[in-house]
């Protein structure tokens, strides 16, 4: 430990090492806890952990549900707690929340936005309209659910869903991401075996 302390002495200068007040942890113990330890994990599960903890959503409001989506992002519900950051460009975002009615005129732009998003990408269909047409299921100009255009991972029912429901949907997506990583590892090894044979 002596060596460590010397090596990192300039980094630990800022800390008051003698103080034992709470919140002012001596730097030594931090290094003791973190540095000597080794984390062993499958790489894809580790990546999944990173991915699910920082989902950037494409800020993309279509109709009424967008207002509830905005509410979820704002002061009262504060979805930032889950690492959700809304981002206006598809090129840097991971999740597309389709919040609202998808009409036929908007179908092509939605597909293009989805294609512009880098892999890995996920889609949440928010509200009855994006799920299956909702109140407009008989309309001549509405696409009966966004899953006719792009693959959807999580459906959030409601018209509009409450912000809490959207949060729950996002938590489900996070579960899906981590469990997918596990399942996918199995899948890949199976495939590998099959190819060998």
């Amino acid at each position: 430990m002596e060596m460590n302390q010397d090596k990192y002495s300039d980094l630990t200068k800022g800390y008051d090492q003698d103080s034992d007040k709470r919140g002012n942890i001596p730097a030594e113990s931090v290094f003791e806890e973190v540095l000597p330890n080794v984390i062993a994990a499958k790489s894809n599960e580790l990546f999944a952990l990173a991915r699910k903890s920082s989902l950037w959503t494409l800020s993309f409001g279509l109709a009424c549900c967008a207002i509830e989506m905005m509410s979820a992002h704002m002061s009262h519900h504060d979805i930032d707690r889950f690492g959700i950051v809304t981002w206006p460009s598809p090129r840097q975002s991971d999740v597309m929340i389709v919040a609202g009615t998808v009409v036929k005129k908007m179908a092509d732009p939605i597909k293009r936005l989805y294609e512009q998003m880098p892999e890995p990408k996920w889609v949440i269909a928010m509200g009855a309209c994006a799920t299956n047409g909702g109140p407009y299921y008989r309309s001549y100009s509405v696409v009966m659910g966004v899953d006719h255009l792009i693959p959807v991972d999580v459906y959030v029912p409601g018209c509009p869903p409450r912000p809490e429901a959207l949060m729950y949907g996002i938590m489900e997506l996070q579960d899906k991401i981590s469990s997918d990583a596990k399942n996918r590892a199995n899948l890949i090894s199976k495939k590998h075996l099959n190819n060998e044979n």
């Binding site: 279509l62 009409v103 908007m106 732009p109 407009y136 309309s139 100009s141």
Partner: peptide
């Protein structure tokens, strides 16, 4: 405009 035309007026008739 028209990217959110849901045909509400026509649906009202039904």
């Amino acid at each position: 405009i028209g990217y959110l035309h849901r045909g509400s007026e026509k649906l009202c008739e039904t």
